[in-house]
Structure formats: C-alpha cells, structure tokens
Design a protein around this nucleic acid. Structure first.
Length: 426
DNA sequence: TCTACTACCACTTTTGAAGCGC
DNA sequence: AGCGCTTCAAAAGTGGTAGTAG
C-alpha cells in the first residue's frame, strides 16, 4: 500500500544534495558515432567492439570515471515546487525541456519507467527545444540514459530503499538513442521541437531491436548530447563521427527515473493514467470495472490527504501549461479539436517547402499532449495546396482567441504526411 | 512467504490501405 | 483514370492482473 504522502515516498542516499542541473563539457566524453546503412548508429570508443543491430540506435561507451558528475537529487521526494530549471545554456546553446511541468509532477513522486522484454516507451518522454545552434551547421542529437548512482533499490511499502550495489553495466556500454532526424541542420533543430518519443526501454540484455537496455530497480537519468557533424561527413560504419570537443551534453535532473518492471508507487500509476492518452481506458470516467479498486483507493487518498497538484487527476489541474490539458483529439481530426473548446487555431507562418524555398501557410496550433507531433505531421501536409485550402477554410470558422500558446512549426524533412481532415458539414 | 518478472487481457490511439464520389 | 476524401481494421500503445520462478 503506497503512502498517501508523496513526500514520504523518498529514500535516497544522496538526498541532502540540492537538485542542480548539469551541463557537461564533452571533453569528458570520448567516443565515436557510427551509422549503419539503415540509419542505425552507435557511439563507441576506439577500444570497444560494438554490435548494434537496432534502428536509430546509438551505443555510448564511457568509462565510469569519465561520466560527468550528476546532480544528487532527492529521488521521489523532491518538493513538487522545486524550481527545476527548464532551460540549460552552455556555449551559447540553450536547451529547453519543453514538458518540464509534467516531468516535475512525476519527479515529485519519484518517476518510474516500465521495462519490458519487447521494449516500452518512456512516459513522459524527453522533449526539447533548441536555440543558439549554428543554423547552417549539421548536428546530431543523441539521448543517452546513464545510471544515476551506484545502487540497486527495492520498494518498501511506501518508499525506495537502497538494496545493495548496482548491477554491473554489461560490457561497460551505455546504449543511447539518436534522434531519427539526425543529422540535421541547426536551423531545422531550432525550428521545431525535438521529441524522443520513439525511444524504448528494455530489460532484455540481448535485445536486438536497438532499445535502451536498463536494469530494473536502478535509477537512471537521460542526457542529451548535441554533436556537431563536420561538413561533408556521412555516417557509415566505415566512417564514424568523433564526438569532438564542440559536442555538448545536457542533463535535466527532473528527468531522473527508477526503472521497474511493475509500477511500485501507486501515485506514479495514477499520474501515468491521467496523462498518457494510451492509458485513457484506465481513467475514472469510464465504466472499466478494472478501475474499481484503483478508483476506490484514489478517492480515499483525496479525502484524507491534501494532495499536491502533482497527484490530482489531470482534468482537475489548472491548465497552466499545455501538458496539463487533457485533450480528446480523436483520429487526428481538426474538427474534433475545434469542437473541444477550440483547442486548435491556425496561424500564418513561413514554412519550408520540399525544394528548400520558403512560403507562407496556415499552421495548425494544437494544444495538449502529442499536439506537437501532430503539428509536425500537419506541417508536411501544408506543402500540399489541398491542405492549404483546408486550413484556410477552417480558420474562417475559428475565432483566434489570444492565448499564450505557441505555434510550433514541425520539421518537414522526411516527415510522413499526417492525416488532418475537414470537419463534417454542419 | 515475499519479491521480481512475464504473459496475456481489455482498452485507446495511431496508421495506412481500401473504397467511394466527383 | 486520377484525385480528394472518408472509413475502417490492423498495429501499436497503455496499465491491470494472474501466474511463475527464485
């Protein structure tokens, strides 16, 4: 039985240290990147022999001593009001953790990520906005997930407790995940959000699908590597790209998580259910009998404990930021989102066409989870005059309320067409 | 007996192909 | 025949739960 008090669900050998973001100089990170013909890649030191068969995968090899010092956070016990930085800047490059509010909510209770044999996506996943890159230069973005400390943990009724030393990382390798657009121009990275939603976690030590291999009951933290790619370089297994001194590593302490095979903290389960659209079937508004037990427990919690905002169902939260809004955008339809409190509006923005020329088009601005990916898809469709007409028609029906929402321009290179539909005639 | 893990379940969302109408 | 649009089923995602292994 999980404790009702989120703050009680903490136990860390390093809990006295203040949470602090780190930006790591690449000089401590020695490695190379290799890309397979299927855009598969890995990073390896010259002394390591790697076999990477997964797709969009990067293996990173670092000696433990070369790992940058990670911030010591109070895992699972952080005050939800802790002011985790949403922006890190290094050498003029700024990285914004776009879904910082969600990460902070989860971090307040001790984020847990499920590991499965076939691989499980992270939720929340790492989503960044970049600024300060050289627009004309190519960069690769790589996400690695490294041990946060050297302990193995166990869940003890209400909190995590140290349960011995960490298991040895196989072969000293830390797999990482290259963003599926890598490499790409700095202007492209800066013109859109960078989401690592495709990344999957597994506990299968012989995984061949390119997922990140982790140990359950261990703490990990994602790190974003921004790696400039020298002009003319082509990623091939024969021509690896060296992580040079210009590479940068960014670590957001609020993204730390515990790898588990089954959720241990009931509050994390509730947060996942409330925020993850795929888990809608477990929300309280349904008639799902499987929810009865959980629902009952939830109500008890609400009655007996003044919950921090992190623990309230999403629909009860004030939509301060986009992540707090629970959308019901069905089947990619613009009409659905229009009818749902006008959560879509269109903004005239310059976009890039296939041949590199720029023109203006109406860009859908959708609020809420997964909206940015949808916008990215929609962006590619704007190249099609048909969709331009679609947006033109819709915009005449939507009052453009003034709101703080940003309009995010998705990247269009290699993006598959999305499926935005006209609203049915009324 | 307890803990960690796996397989399967029901459910939702996403995706892409087929079908229809012009 | 080709294009634009809609529909629908399969694929892929989610957490819950029962069973198993150590």
């Amino acid at each position: 039985m999980a404790s009702n008090d989120c703050s009680s669900a903490l136990s860390s050998p390093a809990e006295a240290s203040p949470a602090k973001a780190t930006v790591t100089s690449p000089t401590t990170f020695h490695g190379t990147i290799e890309m397979s013909p299927q855009a598969t890649s890995h990073i390896a030191s010259a002394s390591d022999s790697l076999s990477s068969t997964g797709t969009s995968l990067v293996n990173i090899s670092e000696s433990p001593s070369s790992l940058p010092v990670l911030p010591s956070t109070t895992f699972g016990g952080t005050d939800p009001k802790t002011d985790f930085p949403a922006v890190l800047t290094f050498k003029g490059v700024s990285i914004t953790l776009e879904n910082n509010s969600v990460w902070k909510q989860f971090n307040g209770c001790g984020t847990e990520m499920i590991l499965t044999k076939q691989g499980r996506r992270m939720f929340p996943y790492c989503r960044y906005r970049l600024a300060g890159l050289d627009p004309e230069r190519k960069y690769s973005l790589v996400l690695s997930i490294v041990p946060s400390d050297q302990y193995r943990y166990r869940w003890s009724t209400t909190k995590w407790e140290v349960n011995g030393p960490a298991e040895h990382q196989a072969q000293g390798l830390i797999r990482a995940f290259a963003h599926h657009y890598s490499p790409c121009l700095g202007s492209d990275w800066m013109g859109s959000l960078v989401s690592f939603y495709k990344l999957k976690l597994t506990n299968n030590p012989v995984d061949q699908d390119g997922h990140i291999i982790l140990h359950s009951m261990h703490r990990y933290i994602p790190r974003l590597h921004v790696i400039p790619v020298p002009e003319g370089d082509v990623f091939t297994p024969e021509q690896p790209v060296v992580m040079g001194p210009e590479s940068m590593t960014f670590t957001f302490p609020q993204t730390e998580f515990m790898a588990v095979t089954t959720y241990q903290n009931f509050r994390i389960t509730q947060l996942k259910i409330n925020h993850n659209p795929f888990a809608k079937g477990f929300r309280e508004d349904g008639n799902n009998t499987r929810l009865n037990r959980v629902t009952t427990e939830t109500q008890l919690v609400v009655r007996t404990d003044p919950l921090p905002s992190a623990l309230k169902p999403a629909e009860l939260l004030e939509p301060k930021e986009e992540e707090a809004v629970d959308l019901s955008i069905k089947n990619h339809t613009v009409s659905a989102s229009l009818s749902n409190e006008q959560q879509t509006r269109l903004v005239l923005k310059p976009i890039m066409s296939n041949n590199g020329s720029k023109h203006e088009a109406y860009v859908p601005c959708i609020r809420g989870k997964h909206a940015l990916e949808r916008q990215s898809n929609a962006q590619s469709d704007i190249r099609d005059s048909h969709f331009h007409k679609v947006y033109s028609r819709i915009i005449t029906r939507v009052p453009q309320e003034e709101e703080k929402d940003r309009t995010d321009v998705g990247r269009i290179h290699g993006e598959k067409s999305g499926r935005l539909r006209l609203p049915p005639p009324r």
